[in-house]
């Protein structure tokens, strides 16, 4: 479904702040894979997601989604394949627009937008039903401005928006990191529900090792711009946090990074 081949990405090339974020990254996702991604700060997790989404162009390598080479495709065109939820709850929604307007925008992802009505009556009914799934009572506040919602509510809404049009690929960039533990758990639960229900191919970055083990069918660990650990199936199910740390220090060839990874 997703094929990342030998991708290189450098920031601030040619300056003292030069940072090679991705160094020949290879990753292949099968249809229906739910992959959790972990790694310390600067490992290249977010850069990978942003390169896949088209936020940054890559210097080398190719990225294809569902067999379509999207390497040179602009971000807004790639959006037809991709649903995204960001780390910052403010990022995924338009605060000054209503809940239903945000959903209507998301429902038209990948479609051309002309002078048809921005939102129809039938749509509203669909959204009301979809909002009920979140269990946050948003279905009764559909004309409220999104700016009035809490971070958790906005993140849940963004998740719904990302999956309203079934995406070929769902990208979750630490989407629960900015939430309190209780809300984070709730959003993760909804994530699991939606991903399972629609059999979505998903890449989820997380800083929480327990979540990384508990969710998805495959776990990928990144270090220094490429994938160093890749476990799936039974092996992943039986993983413990300790084993994960051992795997990581072996892969990165150092013990001290343990703390870095844990504290990150």
């Amino acid at each position: 479904m997703l094929d990342i081949q030998n991708v290189f990405k450098t920031f601030n090339a040619g300056t003292v702040n030069e940072k090679v974020a991705l160094k020949g990254l290879n990753l292949h996702l099968n249809e229906g894979d739910f992959v959790t991604v972990i790694g310390g700060n600067g490992a290249g997790k977010s850069t990978m997601l942003n390169c896949v989404a088209g936020v940054y162009p890559v210097e080398e390598g190719t990225i294809s989604i569902g067999g379509v080479d999207v390497t040179g495709m602009p971000e807004h065109k790639r959006a037809q394949f991709i649903g995204r939820v960001f780390q910052d709850p403010m990022m995924g929604t338009a605060a000054t627009m209503q809940i239903e307007e945000n959903l209507a925008l998301a429902a038209r992802r990948g479609k051309s937008r002309f002078l048809r009505s921005g939102i129809t009556k039938e749509e509203r009914e669909v959204y009301r039903e979809e909002l009920k799934i979140l269990g946050l009572g948003l279905e009764d506040r559909m004309t409220a401005k999104v700016g009035l919602l809490s971070g958790g509510q906005r993140q849940a809404l963004t998740l719904l928006m990302a999956t309203l049009q079934k995406p070929q690929l769902l990208l979750l960039d630490e989407h629960t990191a900015a939430l309190d533990p209780k809300t984070a758990a709730k959003v993760l639960e909804v994530t699991q529900k939606i991903v399972e229900q629609d059999h979505l191919t998903t890449l989820m970055i997380t800083h929480n090792m327990r979540d990384a083990i508990a969710y998805g069918n495959r776990l990928v660990m990144m270090y220094d711009g490429h994938v160093v650990v890749d476990v799936s199936g039974e092996e992943k199910k039986n993983l413990t946090v300790e084993q994960l740390l051992n795997l990581f220090s072996r892969a990165s060839g150092s013990d001290e990074v343990n703390d870095k990874l844990l504290l990150a």
Binding site: A53, P74, E75, H76, K77, A79, Q80, I82, R84, F86, M91, G92, T93, A94, A95, T96, M97, E101, A104, L105, A106, R108, R109, G110, K111, R113, F114, L115, R116, S117, G118, I119, M161, A162
Partner: peptide, 27 residues
């Protein structure tokens, strides 16, 4: 006009251009 699909996408562009692009809008 600003109630149509195109008009709403212009409002979204101003409200949050990152979100707009993620929703396939040519900002």
């Amino acid at each position: 006009f600003f109630g149509t699909e195109l008009g709403a996408s212009i409002r979204a562009t101003g409200a949050n251009s990152k979100m707009a692009r993620a929703q396939g809008i040519n900002t």
